[in-house]
C-alpha cells in the first residue's frame, strides 16, 4: 500500500456525493474493515472488487447503515452523505435509507404483487399524494428498470412469480421508486444467468448519472464493463482505488495486478 491511509483519494471531477474517512468495522473482536477512505461521485459507477471475504460487501453495507441490523457490528470513522455525517445521532436511519437505496445479491421481492412491491417505498415514505401519482411513480420506476414492457399487463401478479432476472430488475425498480440519491448494489448479478446479467448491466448504464451507483462484484469483467471507478479490496483494506481503465490496464499495486490477471482470488 503506497497511499497513506489517511490521504484522501480523489474521486474525479465534481464534489463527492459520499465520502468515507478512516472507516473501521468490527464484528465483535474481529476487524473486518481496516481504515478505508473512499469518495463516491455522482456521475460515476463505482465498483468494489476483491476476493471473497475481503470486506467489500461489509463496507458497502456501511454506506446505508445496514450493518446496524447486526448487533455485534461496530463502525468507526466518518461517512458523509453530501457533507452530513450519516452515523451522527441526529441522522435518522429511515431517512438515510430513503436516500441511499440498496439492491441485494439474491433478488428479494416481497411476496406481494408487482405493483405493491414498487409502491412499497413510496407508500411508507408518503411520497405520493394520491392513487394517480402512485400509479405514475410505479410506471416510471418500472420503465427505468426496463421491466415495464414485460409486466405492464400483470401488475397484480405476485412479484415472486417472475424470473430471477426480472425479480432483480423489480428490486431495482423498487429502489428507484423512492427516488434515492445513491443506489448500492451488492453483487446484483451473482444469482443470474448471463442474459439476465447483460440486461442488468445495460440498465446500470441507463440510470447512471441520475443516481450515484456503487456496485460490489465478484466478476472483474463486469466491473470493467459497468464502472468508471474501481476500488480493490483485500483482507479488509483498500489496496487501490482509481479510474477503472487505469486499474485494469495499469495497476500501481502488484496485489491488484495479481488479482485481475487471475493469479489468486
Amino acid at each position: 500500500m503506497t497511499n497513506s491511509k489517511n490521504e484522501m483519494i480523489s474521486a474525479g471531477d465534481g464534489s463527492p456525493k459520499m465520502t468515507t474517512r478512516n472507516v473501521n468495522v468490527f464484528y465483535g473482536d474481529k476487524q473486518a474493515i481496516n481504515d478505508v477512505s473512499i469518495d463516491v461521485n455522482m456521475d460515476n459507477v463505482t465498483a468494489f472488487i476483491g476476493p471473497s471475504g475481503c470486506g467489500k460487501s461489509t463496507f458497502l453495507r456501511c454506506l446505508n447503515r445496514m450493518n446496524d441490523t447486526i448487533p455485534i457490528a461496530k463502525v468507526t470513522g466518518e461517512i458523509t452523505l453530501e457533507g452530513e455525517d450519516i452515523y451522527s445521532p441526529t441522522m435518522d436511519v429511515v431517512q438515510l435509507r430513503a436516500r441511499v437505496g440498496m439492491v441485494f445479491q439474491k433478488p428479494n421481492p416481497f411476496p406481494k404483487s408487482i405493483y405493491d412491491n414498487v409502491a412499497y417505498g413510496p407508500r411508507i415514505h408518503g411520497l405520493a399524494a394520491g392513487k394517480d401519482e402512485l400509479d405514475n411513480i410505479v410506471e416510471t420506476s418500472l420503465q427505468r428498470a426496463g421491466l415495464w414492457g414485460e409486466v405492464k399487463d400483470r401488475l397484480l401478479d405476485s412479484g415472486t412469480a417472475l424470473s430471477g432476472g426480472q425479480q432483480q430488475r423489480l428490486c431495482i425498480a423498487r429502489a428507484i421508486a423512492v427516488d434515492p440519491e445513491v443506489i448500492l448494489m451488492d453483487e446484483p448479478c451473482s444469482a443470474l444467468d448471463p442474459i439476465a446479467t447483460a440486461k442488468i448491466e445495460e440498465l446500470i448504464h441507463e440510470i447512471r448519472g441520475r443516481y450515484a451507483i456503487v456496485i460490489v462484484t465478484h466478476n472483474m469483467q463486469q466491473a470493467a464493463r459497468v464502472s468508471q471507478r474501481t476500488a480493490f479490496f483485500h483482507l479488509g483494506t483498500l489496496v487501490e482505488y482509481g479510474e477503472t481503465s487505469e486499474i485494469f490496464t495499469n495497476p500501481t499495486e502488484t496485489q491488484t495486478r495479481d488479482y485481475i490477471t487471475g493469479r489468486y482470488g
Partner: peptide, 18 residues
C-alpha cells in the same frame, strides 16, 4: 421468513414496525 426479505424492507427505509 428469509432475512433477505427483512433486509430488503429495511433498506427501503422502512422502520422495524413497518
Amino acid at each position: 421468513v428469509p432475512s433477505a426479505m427483512r433486509d430488503g424492507s429495511l433498506a427501503m427505509g422502512a422502520t422495524k414496525s413497518e
